Computed example of a mutant assay.
Amino acid sequence: MASSIDVQITTKKKQKPLQHELGFGIHFTDHMFIMNYAEGKGWHEPRIVPYQPIVLDPAAKVFHYGQTIFEGLKAYKTSDGQVLLFRPDRNFKRLNRSNERLGVPAIDEELALQALKKLIVIDQDWIPTASENSLYIRPFVIATEPALGVDASTQYQFIIILSPVGNYYPEGVNPVKIYVESEYVRAVRGGIGEAKTAGNYAASLKAQENAKEQGYSQVLWLDGVHRKYIEEVGSMNVFFKINGTVHTPALSGSILDGITRSSIIQLLKHWEVPVEESMIAIEDLFNAAKNGQLEEAFGTGTAAVISPIGELNWKDEKVLINGGNTGEISQKLYDTLTGIQRGALPDPFGWMVQVND
């Protein structure tokens, strides 16, 4: 595979948005990375080019059979001007696990990280420095072969785009309200639930739309077989503190192996807080809430980092968690993890990778 990356710098720089008007994923930087794949040739032609539309044949397989994978990670600028990435190697490893599940050729992870660093250096002026803002990174793969036969594509593009962002949820670090979905199913073990692919998110959109109409930020999914065991929120893994122990659904093959999730588990164990990965029945969780044993709940993910959960609604039965306030563990986790990510706190785990060294 070629390792040299061609660079074409734009002559037309965009106007940068004000930091308090960023929103999430609606502004994009001046450049993007692209690499092509062709059967018999492999991945080739890695290049950084001005941000631009993608031109595809109407028969490109991504449109018809959903063969696409994506990742999400962030870059941060420290007070002394360093640019840091949070565990990027884990993202590219997971990208390749998703690739394998969808029949897509593996990406060279070292080249992907090299390309990402170079792209960020070129567009580093886009990294916001205001508190709770960051540069969101979206690597993705699309099937580009123009053919309507139902089989894996023989052509692909691997692309990385960058977006300066604020908080994912309008509530910020304040508790969100979550609706427990009991009608629709997102994924089952043996399917593609553990892959980060568009189909998983397409399957969630109708339920999420219904939840928002009722005033809820996101949907909490139950397992697709028994319809009773908690899996994940649409954009987050979930944790529940019950009687002093933090519980999170075990990786079962139908939920995402979250990088923030694994980092939170590592942090909790470092603090000697009991953590259990197991099957959690929604009925047991609601009973714990009614008995006063459910002390905190929160979601974890790249976009939101830590998002406290203040209310759950399951079949029109509502429970308020910690009085609808942010819990002590949730706040400590948020402060610690974001402090490490921004270089304000020590990184005892070796998570952060410097870009502009």
Rank of each mutant, 00 (worst) to 15 (best):
E277K: 03
L320G: 01
A303P: 04
L312N: 03
D316F: 10
L312Q: 04
G292W: 10
A297G: 03
L294F: 11
I321C: 04
V305R: 02
F298Q: 03
I282V: 13
G301H: 05
A297E: 07
G324M: 02
A304Q: 10
N322P: 00
T300V: 08
V275A: 13
K290F: 14
Q293G: 01
N325R: 05
E317L: 07
I280V: 10
I282P: 00
A297C: 11
A289P: 04
E328F: 10
Q293C: 06
E276K: 14
G323I: 05
N291H: 12
G323H: 00
E311W: 02
E295P: 07
L294P: 09
E295R: 02
G301Y: 04
N291Y: 09
F286M: 10
I306N: 05
M279F: 04
K290I: 12
M279G: 00
D316R: 02
L294Y: 06
E317D: 11
G327F: 00
W271F: 15
S307D: 12
I282N: 00
V305S: 05
L285N: 07
W314R: 06
L320E: 09
M279C: 00
I329K: 00
D284S: 15
A289R: 06
G324E: 02
K290S: 15
T300S: 15
E328H: 08
E283N: 09
E296L: 10
D284N: 14
A303S: 12
T302R: 03
I321L: 04
N313R: 03
L320R: 00
K315H: 04
K290W: 12
W271V: 15
K290R: 15
I306P: 06
M279S: 02
H270T: 13
A297D: 07
V305P: 03
A281Y: 06
P274I: 14
N325C: 05
E296D: 12
L312W: 03
L320T: 11
I321G: 03
L312G: 05
N287I: 09
I282T: 04
V273L: 13
E276I: 15
V273N: 09
P274D: 13
G299H: 04
I321Q: 01
A281D: 14
G324Y: 03
E311D: 06
I329V: 15
K290Q: 15
N325Y: 02
K318D: 10
V305Q: 04
W314I: 10
V319K: 01
A281I: 05
K315L: 08
G323N: 00
E283F: 10
W314C: 15
T326E: 11
N325F: 05
W271A: 14
A288E: 11
G301W: 04
N322E: 01
E328N: 09
V305K: 02
N287D: 13
E311L: 11
F286H: 05
S307H: 11
S307K: 09
A281R: 06
A297T: 03
G299S: 07
A303C: 10
A304W: 11
I282F: 00
V275I: 15
V305H: 01
A281M: 07
N287L: 12
N313T: 07
N313P: 01
I280M: 02
T302V: 11
P308R: 07
A304S: 15
I280N: 01
A297Y: 03
G310K: 02
L294M: 10
F298W: 12
G301L: 08
V275E: 14
G292T: 12
D316Y: 09
N313L: 11
A297R: 01
